[in-house]
Nucleic acid binder design. Structure first.
Length: 876
RNA sequence: GGGUGUGUAGCUCAGGUGGUUAGAGCGCUACGUUCACAUCGUAGAGGUCGCUGGUUCGAGUCCAGCCACACCCACCA
């Protein structure tokens, strides 16, 4: 028995618990069925569910549940990410509240504290995923820092190192002075600002009064200048090439060199070269073998290579300008639009800094990763994202993987006292290798850097399945079937997974990659805490239920586009759930219980045959769209079938049957209703798993749980459905006419059908009478019976007449008919224009022409009828 | 500078291969206490499909140009 009211919260929590406790999310490993697998994009272990997750996980759960019902062996592999920088920052912030820094604690104690924090807050997001209904196999939950995954990290690191694909280099890297670590290119955000361009000059050595003029946005870096560059094509300035200039405020003299990096059109045409603090200058420096002078400390204050040691860059900039001005070398300062790099996590200004770092040879790894997409082993959905992927992969730079953090996978690198590097999976092995190398016992020290978080996430598709062990799960579920993620993560994660997997497994990590957009606010703006326009999915679920939120996500997901969150739409889908719930109650109250021996093909009543046909059409539509990842089309098809077809028409049309006397027909209709309701529960389950399960469990005995029930296969049989479509069209036409003429709801007029070409009325008269609120409906036997007060309406099956004397205002009816006539007239003009066009008639396909002629004939007929009707009531 | 998208009803958006009178939800208007549901029902109003050309018998759909807007990548001394 269903409850009187639909209360999502009670239903959803209870049902999820049952699924998880019963092991319903676990694949049946004994089955020989085809495998289907998804690895979850691991959320930050200490994070909270946001709408982006809600979208991502909903889509995955729909695919997982659909494929599970299709009988496949399904694994949805869950887990979380240690999120190096993000997590370390949170913990450091907490410590700061107590006035402690991580350095006070020391590395070991600090890491202990992070683990404690993880234990404390780490379960939240997984609980939230459960609340959403995600049917992951939680018994297999993994964490990027757990023992197994760490082993995978070590193994692949050593392998890459020994293959020469990981190397150490002193290079200019993006340095985050707040976090005091290197970060990758992807972790740097370029922000537009209006800065200043400073113009000043360096005196030429040996030529009194001669200068080379410089333009720069960062005058304080001049202490790191080791040359000035001018293009050899710069007619105005090329005479300076080869000369030397004095670097003011220092005792250094630097060369003026020829380099095409200096664009004659830009700035002054002469560029100060600071190889240790600018990526372009670094390249110039390499070309000309320039000295690289580092002028910054790790916290971005100036160092002792400058006169302003200890000052911040902004303070030093001011001092530098003042000092240059005093020397009479400043020329001017102009406003200048520019882009400044910021750390995506710390929001600190990123400084290019010369440091020792570790790199992955991404350009080499990209080769196979590109090939796998080119040859279709991995397909993006929608396809156009492969362009983004190729674009990036073909221009990929070495990937800086070392981070000067404490929270993360410490690199398996050991140094001998003389600096020789040993890379092994364990300290013992490294020691052994070192001892062998030196022929004696040496003391090793371990590299303190940890790996970029995305290094371990890059292994996620196979490390979670047990690799490096050749587990049953790895064999069964790798490569995974599809990865579902946002476009913002293609470079960070999708590309890295492709590279790591192709390198280690020689197979793609997933056969398809479904890319969705961002979740935005109702007006399409990006959600952010500062704009205060974020919507908390947990609050939404609390208010409307997880089913409503899920359905919203599915219905809004059109390939490639962003999703705008809309409370009114979510509310609408909650209403949809309520509607279904009440429809189920209607069935229940009318004794519609599932009959095991029900055979759809033996059904006789036109209404029942009709709804079965519609159910098959909907099944086909939904299945087709799910297979093609067309989530919104699938969701809309099920919505339309449930509300627009089953509730609005089938249930309404079944009422005269249930309230009537024909017991045989009642029995058949009950069985049909139960069958179709079951079909609805099956089709809707991937989208709304909770309410469908609740109804499934409480309406009749079942020999299978809904979550494992077989997805309906559509048979080809075409049933006769025209009689019901005829009735629906007629009912709608009568209702429309009644509304136009203000026929009171209580009035029960008669209806006469004219020129009826079919005998559909025999089966449908009682339902038409009931739904159109008529006293009677019959076929007009003789035109002589037409009275003046008969108002005429048209519908697809012909013409009907309704005597309305004393009920309506005939002036309104005359107006209506005139309007209708003019509409018919304009349609006729359209048809005539087309059909009199020789080009159309001769070139358009025959069936299109025929169809046009048919419509013309139909409209002509309507014109005649309508004119007659108007004439008839002319004087009333 | 390179790339990718978007512009359709008051709002948010659907409209795989060109072909009925361009759709949905919300909102709006009128009516409705029919015993599944007012978290509902019935009916309705509302659109020069960004602009201009082109291809075609036929263009929201294909092509070109333009105008807006969004995002991504690179760079700007």
């Amino acid at each position: 028995m269903l409850e009187k009211n639909y209360t999502p919260k009670d239903i959803e929590e209870r049902i999820y618990q049952d699924w998880e406790e019963s092991g319903d999310f676990k694949p049946d490993m004994r089955s020989s069925a085809e495998a289907f697998s998804i690895v979850i994009p691991p959320p930050n272990v200490t994070g909270y569910l946001h709408m982006g997750h809600a979208l991502d996980e909903t889509l995955q759960d729909i695919l997982v549940r659909y494929n599970r019902m299709c009988g496949k062996k399904v694994l949805w592999q869950p887990g979380t990410d240690h999120a190096g920088i993000a997590t370390q920052m949170v913990v450091e912030k907490n410590l700061a509240k107590e006035g402690i820094s991580r350095h006070d604690l020391g590395r070991e104690k600090f890491i202990e504290t992070v683990w404690k924090w993880k234990a404390h807050s780490g379960g939240t997001i997984c609980k939230q995923l459960r609340r959403l209904g995600a049917s992951c196999d939680w018994s297999r939950e993994r964490f990027t820092m757990d023992e197994g995954l760490s082993r995978a990290v070590l193994k692949i690191f050593v392998s890459l190192y020994k293959d020469g694909l990981i190397y150490k280099a002193k290079k200019l890297v993006n340095w985050d002075p707040k976090l005091m670590t290197a970060v990758s290119d992807l972790e740097v955000l370029q922000k537009e600002t209006v800065g200043k361009m400073y113009y000043y000059k360096y005196p030429i050595v040996g030529e009194e009064g001669e200068f080379v003029r410089i333009a720069t946005t960062r005058p304080e870096t001049m202490f790191g200048d080791t040359a000035v560059a001018i293009s050899k094509d710069n007619e105005k300035l090329k005479h300076l090439i080869g000369k030397k200039c004095k670097l003011p405020l220092t005792d250094r003299v630097i060369d003026i060199i020829a380099d095409d990096h200096a664009d004659p059109e830009k700035g002054t045409g002469a560029v100060k070269i600071t190889p240790a603090h600018d990526f372009n200058d670094f390249e110039v420096g390499k070309r000309h073998n320039l000295e690289m002078i580092n002028i910054l400390n790790e916290d971005a204050t100036l160092n002792e290579n400058t006169p302003f040691a200890g000052l911040s860059t902004t303070e030093a900039r001011q001092k530098t300008i003042e000092a240059l001005d005093k020397l009479g070398l400043m020329e001017k300062i102009e406003d200048h639009p520019m882009v400044i790099p910021y750390g995506e996590r710390s929001n600190a200004v990123i400084e290019p800094l010369m440091t020792d770092q570790w790199f992955v040879d991404a350009p080499k790894l990209a080769v196979d990763a590109i090939k796998a997409v080119e040859n279709g082993d991995m397909q993006f959905v929608p396809k156009n994202y492969e362009k983004t992927y190729f674009e990036w992969m073909r221009n990929i730079q070495p990937w800086c993987i070392s981070r000067q953090l404490w929270w993360g996978h410490q690199m398996p690198i050991w140094y001998a006292p003389d600096g020789t590097i040993f890379c092994e999976e364990t300290e013992e092995e490294a020691q052994k290798a070192a001892d062998k190398h030196f022929g004696k016992k040496v003391e090793l020290t371990r590299e303190t850097d940890v790996l970029d978080t995305w290094f371990s996430s890059g292994l996620w598709a196979f490390s979670t399945l047990g690799w490096p062990d050749q587990t049953e799960y790895l064999k069964t579920f790798y490569p995974t079937s599809v990865l579902v993620t946002g476009f913002d993560i293609i470079f960070f994660w999708v590309a890295r997974m492709m590279m790591m997997s192709m390198y280690m497994m020689k197979k793609v990590p997933f056969k398809k990659c479904y890319i969705h957009g961002l979740v935005r606010d109702e007006q399409g703006r990006k959600m952010s805490k500062s704009k205060n326009n974020t919507v908390d999915p947990m609050e939404t679920i609390e208010k409307y239920g997880a089913d409503a939120l899920r359905f919203f996500m599915a219905a809004s997901e059109t390939q490639g586009r962003d999703v705008n969150i809309s409370e009114s739409r979510i509310e609408g889908y909650r209403n949809f759930a309520t509607k279904l719930f009440n429809a189920a109650r209607f069935c229940e109250m009318n004794g519609c219980v599932k009959a095991d021996d029900f055979a759809p093909e033996k059904v006789e009543a036109p209404l029942n045959r009709w709804i079965l046909t519609k159910a098959d059409a909907a099944t086909y539509e939904i299945t087709k769209n799910l297979e093609a990842f067309r989530f919104s089309d699938a969701a809309n098809a099920v919505y339309q079938f449930v509300w627009g077809t089953f509730c609005d028409w089938f249930i309404e049309l079944s009422k005269p049957v249930f309230y009537g006397q024909d017991e045989a027909q009642k029995a058949e209709t009950r069985a049909t209703a139960a069958f179709v309701l079951d079909r609805i529960l099956l089709l809707l389950h991937p989208f709304m798993p909770f309410i469908t399960t609740e109804i499934w469990n409480k309406t009749g005995k079942r020999n299978v749980k809904l979550i494992h029930a077989p997805w309906p296969k559509v048979e080809g049989e075409k049933r006769q459905v025209e009689a019901i479509d005829f009735a629906i069209d007629l009912i709608a036409a009568i209702r429309s006419l009644r509304a136009d003429l203000n026929v009171p709801a209580s009035a029960k007029p008669r209806v006469l059908l004219k020129n009826l070409k079919t005998d559909y009325l025999k089966d449908t008269a009682s339902m038409i009478k009931s739904l159109a609120r008529l006293e009677n409906i019959e076929i007009l036997q003789d035109d002589a019976a037409i009275t003046q007060d008969m108002v005429q309406g048209v519908f697809s099956g012909g013409v009907f007449l309704m005597p309305l004397k004393g009920i309506v205002d005939f002036e309104a009816e005359r107006e209506r008919l005139k309007k209708e006539l003019s509409q018919i007239e304009s349609r006729l003009q359209g048809y005539a224009a087309k059909l009199s066009n020789d080009n159309f008639v001769s070139r358009a396909p025959q069936n299109v022409v025929e169809e046009e002629k048919r419509r013309q004939a139909e409209a002509l007929e309507q014109k005649v009828k309508t004119t007659e009707a108007l004439k008839r009531i002319e004087n009333l």
